[in-house]
Design a protein around this nucleic acid. Sequence first.
DNA 1: CGGTCATATGAACAGTTCTTCACAGGAACA
DNA 2: TGTTCCTGTGAAGAACTGTTCATATGACCG
Lengths: 136, 136
Amino acid sequence: MNSSSQEQVTALEGCATRVVDADRVAAVSSRMPAETDLVDTADIFGLLSDPGRLRLLLALLDGELCVCDLSVVTGLSESATSHALRLLRAHRVVAVRRAGRMAYYRLDDAHVRMLLDLALAHTEHTQAIHPERRDS
Amino acid sequence: MNSSSQEQVTALEGCATRVVDADRVAAVSSRMPAETDLVDTADIFGLLSDPGRLRLLLALLDGELCVCDLSVVTGLSESATSHALRLLRAHRVVAVRRAGRMAYYRLDDAHVRMLLDLALAHTEHTQAIHPERRDS
DNA sequence: CGGTCATATGAACAGTTCTTCACAGGAACA
DNA sequence: TGTTCCTGTGAAGAACTGTTCATATGACCG
């Protein structure tokens, strides 16, 4: 949290914008992940940013389910469910096991599972603190 | 919240979707968070799903930074930075401290910080596995 | 075989999102 | 005081997203 906050108005590698704390800027920039990693991470978060997909993935936390059951649990239409699963499959977040005409989906990404567990724990925690629903 | 397994038979002949594993559907449904919590959680993930905002938040992991420095670090224009910070502020993810004409932003959500730490750890981990590219 | 069932897919469309541009406000500073 | 600097904001437009409808595929049943 400490910063040697003198105003060093040094141009940073031909950048047009001014810099206030050049040391911190340099340090933070050096710690910034590579662009591809950032985009991949943002993509994962994006997959979790839709309530339907989130329900889908939370439903899979306990084990595999077929598409029609997932449709019932999530409240999505079967088509929407299939589209969502396709997206998740394309990103290797879920995997599918086929048995006859059924398709059983399961979580296939330990990282996403951790994110889901964390999110779930947080909602339970905040529910314990605020038993009444809060608007904001 | 409460759906028992006896709905299977009626659902099979009913108008809507059929259920394969009624017990699992009931169990998973009962564990599904409330709609408002789901939407809130999805919103948080949505805030992390943009590479620009992600860079912004990662830059703030170490402490506060002013808007122009954030703009430099993230590569966003100052206007885009301000818009993004406004969004994050509206969701209480960041907080601002004003000093003169400067505005210093900081992370203000422990939950988001955990998510960011986890994401960062994951990218570092995968980088350790695939050390193909390096950052300056 | 024909029919039905579970899932998959494509097109299209409403709604959202992210960026840029233009400008406004308030603080510092001459 | 007037000017410059840092930040904030609204509008607009391009790009993206998520849903539905219609239809396809392939497995099972009779």
